[in-house]
Design a protein around this nucleic acid. Structure first.
Lengths: 224, 224
DNA sequence: TATAAATAATAGTATTACTATCACAAAAAT
DNA sequence: ATTTTTGTGATAGTAATACTATTATTTATA
């Protein structure tokens, strides 16, 4: 099943909305491919322009820098995760089951929608794991934050927080636990793949399954 | 009290050992100042050369890239943390007290040694929070890891893991919990300062104290 | 059909991340 | 005491990056 998901993303992220033209869509699409391929440090607008058979100048008409483009992609992802979570959790009443499914969704443990808006979700997920912290671990974080470009992330964390509070209304660290679960999902997946001695996935099993089990242990121990 | 701590750091990190000359020490020292000041992205060898009244070429004789220099600094920090932890935990027998003190050490909650080897520990700690993940969140992580430059980090995590196992020998995720505590200490401190709505430090109290309390809650709930 | 908007092509600048060469001074070896 | 080695500073240069500006051409819209 193919589906087209559009989210109204923050206008500070782009100069011209890439959703409104073919070149724009090609930029975002191929940026995901290219960042996945070469990593964010080696990713340049010149290489991206070559990939889409266009010029740097054209890309600069959409995004003022590669950081903005990365943040745009991450914004789309955070909106996507919250949307999918809201859809799938709607029918579930048991908060334990809710949190478990939420963790499964964070981990991309099963694919409901395989192709969305022509974005490759697998590659997008890899980018989120390896590059997402680079969007905010910068000197200008406070100015960027003022432009409200992190509100989809905050909104997603808030959604997770609400599940946490359903499970344990007296828990004093619901926000921190929500952001910790999200960050730890990324860290531990990266460690499991590249620095395995920092994890207990010694059998080198499926990284997702391992991290999913660990996150469950973590979350439910803390909330019990 | 001033103290000089020297650690034998991995030879793959430098071309010439900066400990062996005044310029070398000035490079590392001022790199900490400069990265703290402008952030790793804006940090260049040209700016560093100006700061120490020398030339780019001189710095390149010590470090082949700014990534290597960052990793060198982080290596020193990881060695330092493990050393301090081993010293301070030696007399303590109660594993609960051990873990609590370990978390306090991770958070730099109290300063025993204020100036070490002329490195500014406060600035070093800020760098660790904001920049440490950039040392391994790169495409070349596997090649870099083969050079053993992350072994001080692994060793530090292993030390924390042992405390965890003392507390709960049957715990299945001692390594992951160790790395999670370290990473979460950084994330949550950064969030508390710059994206506070991702934490529960709503009173905007002392970030360290807040994160320290949160880590305690996390660790001891999971291990109970 | 006229007009406006978006794009490709081209050119150019400042900065970055290096590499290479050479001369000089200090330290070490003979 | 004087060679030799070593580290440093000064200078120069290159390829790549991160942009900005200009113009001609295509495409969409009135």
């Amino acid at each position: 099943m193919d589906v087209l998901l559009k989210f109204k993303l923050n206008e500070h992220l782009y100069l011209r909305d890439p959703e409104t033209s073919e070149v724009g869509k090609a930029i975002v699409n191929n940026a995901i491919e290219l960042i996945h391929e070469v990593g964010f440090e080696q990713f340049t607008f010149k290489k991206l322009a070559q990939k889409i058979d266009s010029t740097e100048a054209t890309i600069y008409r959409y995004f003022s820098s590669k950081y903005k483009l990365l943040t745009y992609i991450l914004n789309w992802y955070w909106c996507y995760l919250e949307f999918v979570a809201k859809m799938r959790l709607q029918q579930i009443v048991d908060p334990v089951e809710k949190l478990r499914l939420m963790l499964r969704i964070i981990m991309h443990d099963e694919e409901v929608v395989s192709r969305v808006q022509d974005y490759n979700l697998e590659k997008l997920h890899s980018i989120v794991i390896a590059e997402s912290s680079k969007a905010y671990l910068v000197k200008e974080v406070d100015e960027i934050n003022q432009e409200k470009v992190f509100s989809p992330l905050k909104s997603l964390c808030h959604f997770i927080q609400e599940i946490i509070l359903e499970l344990n209304p007296d828990f004093d660290y619901s926000r921190s636990l929500a952001s910790t679960l999200l960050e730890t999902a990324h860290d531990q997946q990266f460690f499991s793949e590249h620095l395995p001695s920092l994890t207990d996935n010694t059998a080198r099993l499926d990284h997702r399954k391992y991290v999913f089990n660990y996150l469950n242990k973590l979350a439910f121990s803390v909330l019990k």
